[in-house]
Write a protein that binds this DNA or RNA. Structure first.
Lengths: 225, 225
DNA sequence: GGGAGGTTTCACAAAATCTTCATAGAAGAT
DNA sequence: ATCTTCTATGAAGATTTTGTGAAACCTCCC
């Protein structure tokens, strides 16, 4: 809860704000909103530790450029500009003002979250996507921890790595060979059946959630909710 | 094998190339190499479907920026720049040239693969069409699953492989021998009539859609809608 | 050197699948 | 028509693959 990154979304259209909020919340960010430039500045100064601002260019009263300029007087917080068409980007102006990224509308969820992740990574904030959620299973890559329904689950190193690999490749049938190549060191030449043992332990530790690890007979395993 | 993503690694130091290759190969990428800018362009234009270029900035003859500029004239292929120190990043220049990401040396394997994954995800290249559709039958090769009219159909390993072979060769009459050679291991010397049993099961499981598997009397089978 | 925990191997039980076989049924040939 | 050849099918046996507990093996730490 408390180490969720805060993102301030500034747009005059409530539909757009909702859209952004939905995507970002799904990616485990905390979202603050403002519907115009003045409110944006207010919210920004009232809240500590805002990790990123997503700013629409076209707004009444104070446009995105002005808000950006104002904020840059005091802060280096990363700013992503939302522009309607690529011509509107005016990259030169943006760079002078310290804009970090642009996203032109309409954008895909993928683009949005990718840019956000990239920018947070670049500005060295905690890796944005260090938390992966899949059903009731939640994995924190950086902390190397795992919870199921909020309950902490103790996983060994290999178990954790294996689960992570499964989740990163959810919906894909994985052969034992592939699993070995990716989860074990490349210099491991042992028995592939050791995977079975780890799968067994994982399933047991995950409880009912462990059923997401499916056996594909004659082939390998697959993670699927 | 053939749908592995190709990554072009460009660096004048062979040690660095080997390092990158080793990590990337482990992550199931196909790695191409070039030791300077000119060779990079050559390799890039001679190979179709390079999914990503990792480019060292400091190189003799033609540096990374120039290579990037050259490639951007024709292609939007994602480019990751390898820089020695963060100062060398020169993000403004990079942004104008269309660099997608930076990695500063020295880097950890984790950083490398994380960035590569992120960028491929962003550019939507990850697992291209693994889904084959034929009439009401839909096969997902990567998930190793099959649906008919959206309904999930549970197929065994051999059944799945057999159906895939049929669909890959739709409209073509296949002798039992040919089927054995392609779907069974080359060291299988059993009865060819075992195919009949599998065809029977397939037809049954596929329901009405199973009628697409046609018997060619005295010859073998053919898949045809 | 002695745990403690994690990893790997092994052996056997359990499950699923594959193959074979016998028989019935169809298609083609005479 | 009748015979021959090939295919469909259900059931049983053989085989392969997976699940699992226990034991052996590491490795790190005290």
């Amino acid at each position: 809860m408390d180490n969720m990154l805060k993102i301030l979304v500034v747009d005059d259209e409530s539909r757009m704000r909702k859209l952004l909020r939905d995507f970002l919340v799904k990616k485990d960010f905390e979202v603050l909103e403002a519907c115009d430039g003045e409110q944006a500045l207010e919210v920004f100064y009232e809240n500590k530790e805002i990790a990123l601002i997503i700013l629409d260019v076209m707004m009444p009263k104070m446009d995105g450029w002005e808000v950006c300029k104002e904020i840059r007087k005091n802060s280096k917080v990363p700013i992503i500009m939302l522009t309607a068409k690529s011509g509107e980007q005016n990259e030169l102006l943006g760079f002078e003002l310290g804009v970090d990224e642009y996203i032109s509308k309409p954008f895909s969820p993928k683009i949005l979250t990718a840019r956000v992740d990239a920018i947070l990574r670049r500005t060295n904030q905690v890796d944005a996507s260090s938390i992966v959620k899949e059903g009731s299973i939640e994995i924190d890559k950086s902390a190397h921890t795992c919870t199921v329904n909020g309950e902490n689950v103790d996983l060994s190193f290999k178990e954790f790595e294996l689960l992570l690999y499964f989740i990163d490749n959810k919906g894909i049938a994985l052969s034992r060979e592939k699993i070995l190549n990716n989860v074990w060191n490349y210099d491991y030449f042992g028995d592939a059946r050791t995977i079975d043992t780890h799968v067994k332990k994982l399933r047991k530790k995950l409880g009912p959630a462990g059923e997401a690890i499916k056996t594909i007979w004659g082939m390998g395993y697959k993670f699927e909710i």
